[in-house]
Amino acid sequence: MVAADGSGKYRTIQEAVESIRAFMDYTVTVYIKNGTYKEKLVIPSWVKNVQLLGESAEGTVITYADHANINKMGTFRTYTVKVEGSDITFRNLTIENNAPRLGQAVALHTEGDRLRFVGCRFLGNQDTVYTGAERTRLYFSGCYIEGTTDFIFGPSTALFDFCVIHSKSNSYVTAASTPREVELGYVFRNCKLTAAPGVDKVYLGRPWRPYASTFFLNCELGGHICPAGWDNWRDVRNERTARYGEYRCSGAGARTDGRVKWAKQLSQEVDLKDAFSWL
């Protein structure tokens, strides 16, 4: 039990995580009571089979405010929560980077494999969620993710199921860097893409690396999604390699007549069985 007010065994989440034995073959649940936890939380690589369960998604908040321009920190040290361990589940909590809009500011940074995020909120601006390790697999279910530019980015394979993806400015939702030899990068299934008032020109994605893979399946795309849908990141060569597609999407932003010709309108859903057989 973690409680910021001292009513639990631990006052900080980091203390609770550090108390867990390495490489456990049974599951430990860390129950986190409502409160604001100002922590730069790291879950080490030797921690596995752990569930972090918040009392409520809105009331259990892990927050920090680092951004890339603090002492030349750079993007990858700005995280609020960094997950190096595998087989970790987060439920019903908020992970926030509340830095001002002065540069990249990561809320969630993942490096572990088989990570689950259920009913969570991820709040930030640029670079909110960094899926930071090749050949790792992530699952987001019923989550809310917001940001400005490239706010879901990285090389991992990730499935977003029934999530709300909220754009706070005219920019780009995703910036995948999927390796060439990895079949799937980001898959959004049954998600709803929304935007703040006045936001009216958002791209579904742009390729951080040439073989970026991103698909939207049965999603509701708001009118803020621009007709072109996708951007080549100022490099026409990316149009030959990026793997972008949509399947049976709806909403004002789902019209296909203005889409870039190098993105696909799929005739069937992407096969997820191999990539997500662990779920």
Rank of each mutant, 00 (worst) to 15 (best):
G112T: 11
K9N: 12
R121E: 01
V81T: 07
G119Y: 11
A57F: 00
R101I: 05
S277C: 13
K82C: 03
G198H: 04
F117D: 09
V164E: 09
V106S: 02
S267F: 04
E134H: 04
L138S: 07
L204A: 00
D87Q: 06
S167L: 13
V187L: 10
T256L: 12
A65N: 09
I95W: 02
S7L: 11
E55H: 04
L123F: 02
D231N: 15
Y26S: 14
E246L: 12
T36P: 08
G142M: 10
E84A: 14
Q126D: 14
Q104F: 03
V202T: 11
R237K: 15
P207H: 01
G124E: 08
G112N: 15
M73T: 05
E55F: 03
T110F: 02
G251Y: 03
N49S: 11
N98G: 07
V236H: 06
G198V: 11
V42I: 14
K33V: 00
V129R: 12
S169M: 14
L193F: 09
K201S: 07
A65L: 04
R206E: 04
S177I: 13
A254C: 05
D161V: 09
R248F: 03
T178H: 13
D25V: 13
Y10S: 11
D271Q: 15
D25I: 12
P197N: 10
E55Q: 13
L115R: 12
F216A: 04
E58W: 03
Y26T: 15
F122D: 01
R255L: 10
H166C: 08
P179C: 14
C219A: 05
I20Q: 05
E220W: 00
G205K: 12
L41H: 06
R137K: 12
I13E: 04
Y64L: 03
Y79W: 02
V28I: 12
A57V: 05
D66N: 08
R255Y: 02
L53Q: 10
V182Y: 00
I95E: 08
S86V: 09
Y31G: 09
F151D: 02
R77T: 01
T63M: 06
A263Y: 00
I13P: 05
T29C: 10
G59I: 04
M1H: 14
Y211V: 01
T178N: 14
I62R: 08
I32E: 01
A3R: 15
E181D: 14
D5N: 15
T214Y: 00
T157Y: 07
F153C: 07
V164L: 08
T178S: 14
G74S: 12
V199H: 02
A107M: 10
G119D: 15
F276Q: 08
R137C: 07
V270C: 12
A254Q: 06
S250C: 09
L266V: 04
A99L: 14
M73A: 04
D25N: 13
G251H: 04
Y144D: 03
E111G: 06
Q104T: 04
A254H: 02
N170Q: 14
S177M: 15
R121C: 01
V270D: 04
L108G: 01
G198I: 14
P179T: 11
A105P: 07
L159I: 06
G185K: 11
R91C: 00
W278I: 09
A252N: 08
T36M: 12
N97P: 11
V187Q: 06
I152C: 12
L184H: 08
Q14E: 07
L221F: 00
E181Y: 11
Y130L: 06
I32G: 02
V2Y: 08
V118A: 05
R180Y: 03
C143D: 07
N71I: 06
N69W: 01
E39H: 05
